[in-house]
Write a protein that binds this DNA or RNA. Structure first.
Lengths: 230, 230
DNA sequence: GTCTATACACAGATAGAC
DNA sequence: GTCTATCTGTGTATAGAC
């Protein structure tokens, strides 16, 4: 699978995002008409990501958001009860999508090598398709409440665990050579995050997500595969 | 060299930081007594890093800074003319230190393999010794003025260039095997940054900077060294 | 459901006493 | 050189008209 193919699957999916947010926040959202909610949530979230990723969530004023989203300040507060809550909704939804996509794409009957490559691809493709969300979730973590920071850290560890489990499984079944699977997973996570954190750099160098995915897969394999199979 | 040894060299050095800031900002700093300036700059910068790295520079109010540094708001403004300028001083000084340390430690007569390991170690050790500075510089880049963002990106590229040049040199002299030196340098930079960006994770797992340095050096070598020499 | 107008707190910055 | 007191703009959030 390449990125173009991933996009097709992902697009069917993408339309549900704002509907999901609505379902999970029925109690706090004061607007009742479903169609209206979905339409406006999309405006609000896209505007939030756009402004925050340029200058930070904290630096985005509600007046900024009102202007960018096209909704008045009064209207905005019909969708969330505080700026902090808006941030929580964003972080929470990001976590949901992340979790679900990995569950969908990593099948237990795959061999370890395929699992590893699929996990790398999935991470990169998803972060490419939703770059503003990933960038936001990473950069705004430290500005969150303590409880939400914990959630973000747990998410980081969980997604790293996906990789370390695959590496461990491959090691146990002798598909992979001896290596430190925990530190390797951590390294992997860091380079996967680099893709959405420094997009400007890769764009400037005209590296596509497919090229990057291939490079990372090969790089990791040259370390974890036994020398002979290389 | 291990981290303990690096610390000794670095400590002689550390005392000059605030003196350097003074020298580079003589015109904006209104206080004349050198000893006073150095003492207060240290208070101001440490307080700024402490608060900003917890909740972001933008979220740090001058009143917060005043309380944490022990200086009144009036006094603070004798050392910089605006909050923005304080941020610039910090970023600028960080760049200076970074540049200088690499110039000092990477000698042209080293062989490529030693150069590579030294560069990796230097990056990690320096970011360990000055973690708050590195974290700040990374996280606050996007909240800076356009001009300062450009400077930060140039710094990123320059330090990556150090690595890609070493890799290229090793390739040219056949010390290293065929590989994509640009993407490898980029990957390396990402994992080196991970050390100071996710300190909580490595601390929790009780990974020391020396262990991390060794892991990264070996990992990279297993890719760039020719199979036989491995 | 969405708007405008406004309340009230707190931001960055400075003036002037000491 | 440093303080306290204060100016002025902007922040989040809400009330009440439509």
């Amino acid at each position: 699978m390449n990125y173009a193919e991933f996009r097709k699957i992902f697009n069917t999916y993408k339309n549900d995002i704002y509907h999901e947010i609505l379902v999970e926040n029925r109690d706090t959202i004061r607007v009742k008409k479903e169609h209206t909610v979905v339409r406006n949530l999309e405006k609000i979230f896209e505007a939030t990501l756009k402004i925050s990723n340029r200058k930070g969530f904290q630096a985005m004023s509600m007046r900024n958001l009102s202007k960018e989203s096209g909704l008045s300040m009064g209207a905005l507060y019909a969708y969330f009860s505080s700026k902090e809550e808006l941030l929580e909704m964003l972080q929470h939804q990001h976590g949901n999508i992340m979790r679900r996509i990995f569950e969908d794409r990593i099948k237990t009957d795959m061999d370890s090598k395929t699992k590893l490559n699929t996990a790398i691809q999935t991470h990169l493709y998803l972060s490419e398709a939703m770059q503003p969300w990933f960038y936001f979730a990473y950069m705004e973590t430290k500005n969150m409440s303590r409880a939400n920071q914990e959630k973000a850290m747990a998410g980081e560890l969980a997604s790293e665990k996906i990789f370390s489990n695959i590496l461990l499984e491959g090691r146990t079944t002798n598909v992979f050579a001896e290596h430190n699977h925990e530190l390797t997973a951590s390294l992997l996570k860091a380079v996967l995050q680099d893709w959405y954190l420094k997009r400007w750099k890769y764009r400037r160098r005209k590296i596509s997500v497919d090229q990057y995915a291939q490079f990372i897969c090969e790089f990791i394999q040259s370390v974890v595969l036994p020398p002979m199979k290389n």
